[in-house]
Simulated assay, not measured.
Amino acid sequence: MNEAFTSTTARCPVAHPDDHTPCTGAPAVTILDATNAGANGCEHHAARLLASLNGGRVYALPDAPKGAALRVFTAAADINPFPWVTGVPRTRPEQLSLNERARQAR
Score class of each variant (00 low, 15 high):
92 R>A: 15
31 I>Q: 04
72 V>F: 13
34 A>G: 00
25 G>F: 04
30 T>G: 00
72 V>L: 12
18 D>M: 08
70 L>S: 14
68 A>K: 03
66 K>L: 08
66 K>E: 09
77 A>M: 15
99 N>Q: 13
44 H>Q: 04
15 A>Q: 09
62 P>E: 04
91 T>A: 08
66 K>N: 07
50 L>H: 05
41 G>P: 05
28 A>V: 02
87 G>H: 06
64 A>P: 04
22 P>L: 03
10 A>S: 15
16 H>D: 15
48 R>W: 02
76 A>M: 11
102 A>H: 12
90 R>L: 04
53 L>K: 03
57 R>N: 02
69 A>E: 13
57 R>T: 11
23 C>S: 09
49 L>N: 03
104 Q>V: 01
91 T>H: 11
31 I>P: 04
50 L>M: 05
15 A>N: 07
43 E>G: 01
16 H>E: 10
101 R>H: 06
98 L>K: 14
4 A>G: 00
42 C>H: 05
69 A>I: 03
61 L>W: 02
41 G>C: 07
27 P>R: 04
104 Q>E: 11
101 R>L: 05
37 A>Y: 10
88 V>W: 11
94 E>C: 13
55 G>H: 01
93 P>L: 15
60 A>Y: 01
41 G>V: 10
106 R>Y: 04
73 F>H: 12
1 M>C: 10
40 N>V: 02
